[in-house]
Computed example of a mutant assay.
Amino acid sequence: MEDGAGPVKKSERAGEGGSLRQFRQERQYEAVRRAAEEQKYSVTEACRALHISRAGYYQWRSGRASTRTVENRRLAGLVKNIHAKDPDKGYRRIRDDLARYYGTPINDKRALRICRSLGVRSTIKYARHGCTRLASDPQFLAENVLDRQFYAEKPNEKWLTDVTEFKYYVGPSVHKLYLSAILDLYDRRIVSFVLRDANDSALVHETLDQALAADPDAHPLFHSDRGFQYTTRVFHDKLAAAGMTQSMSRVGKCIDNGPIEGFWGILKRERYYGRKFTSREQLCRMIREYIAYYNFNRLQRRLGVHTPMEVFTQYRAA
């Protein structure tokens, strides 16, 4: 989103809330001091009346920050650095980064409190507008063999595929770019992907060819929606020749292909929505770099706070 005048954002209000709470606490401590020194009240009674900690008051009077306060300030600096580098990250992913890359494990609640005090929030997910065009006259339809069993016991056991659409601008003209990808359900890695200007059969054929070239011995269950590219006899024959079983989502059931639909949402939320790409090269570079980041550097809790390629490599090593 662009900066400028307008309504105050929730993230800004959250940051202001942290400052207001600190200011209110300072006033309470000052009130206790005045009550004790000027009106001869007991510090204990004054703190009890204002519902604040007596230890906290004495810490404030000493002028020395507590160990926890110092640590929270250090953590806040790390959180700011992580958020500045990747504004799409919310408190959970920031907590995972702190533990993995900064050697600072904390729990989710503490990470959330620090993020709220700084006004740090993850990017809001936009509504998805898919580009799938169902075949009007399909040559081959497969059953939903996958049946939403979104897990696998080893790599190359189950592959999911789909196509999504991006836009870029050259002057006033709007152009489209299509991304086809194959996702492995075991480690959630992107096995192969292809970018083309046309959403056609050649796009998905090339994606499959790349995956087979990378691992000729793979014979997975191959799941897709009922897009026109996947329902041709030629594509079915390519899968059969590679020793793959074809599976297709039911009509109007996007969740049947949920994991790769989810990957589109992650990619677009973290790198595409809210930005304007002014050349094909710029958009292609973003997608290529993001997929490399996703495979090799993006931690996932469903993978035990590992990256897809770490899980894949660990299996191969074992």
Rank of each mutant, 00 (worst) to 15 (best):
M286A: 13
G252F: 05
D215Y: 06
F235S: 11
H236N: 15
M244P: 07
A202N: 15
G304K: 01
H236Q: 15
L283C: 08
D225Q: 08
K253Y: 08
D225W: 04
Y272D: 01
S279N: 13
A242F: 08
T207R: 11
L283Y: 06
L208S: 04
K238M: 09
D200I: 00
A242E: 12
E281N: 07
R271A: 04
I255D: 09
W264Q: 04
T207C: 13
V234L: 14
R280L: 03
G227L: 06
R280C: 05
T245Q: 14
H236E: 15
K238A: 07
F296W: 13
R288M: 12
G265W: 00
I260G: 08
L239V: 12
E281Y: 05
G265H: 01
S224K: 06
M248C: 10
Q282E: 15
A241R: 14
R233S: 04
L208F: 02
V251R: 14
N257H: 11
V204K: 00
A242K: 05
R275I: 00
G243Q: 09
G258A: 11
S201D: 12
R298A: 01
T245V: 15
R288I: 02
N297T: 03
A211I: 10
I255K: 09
H223P: 05
H223S: 07
H219L: 08
Q229H: 11
A213K: 12
L303I: 00
S279T: 14
E270R: 00
A198D: 13
V194H: 08
D225L: 04
G262H: 12
K238C: 04
C254D: 11
Y230L: 14
A211P: 02
H205W: 05
A218W: 07
F193R: 08
Q210D: 04
Y273H: 13
R226M: 13
L221S: 13
K238T: 04
K253P: 02
A292I: 02
I255P: 05
D256C: 05
M286I: 12
P220F: 10
A242S: 10
Q210S: 04
C254A: 14
S247N: 13
Y273K: 00
M244H: 10
A242Y: 09
E206A: 12
R271V: 05
R302S: 08
C254H: 06
G304T: 01
G227F: 03
D225F: 01
I287N: 03
N295T: 01
H236C: 10
W264C: 03
L221M: 13
L299V: 00
N297G: 10
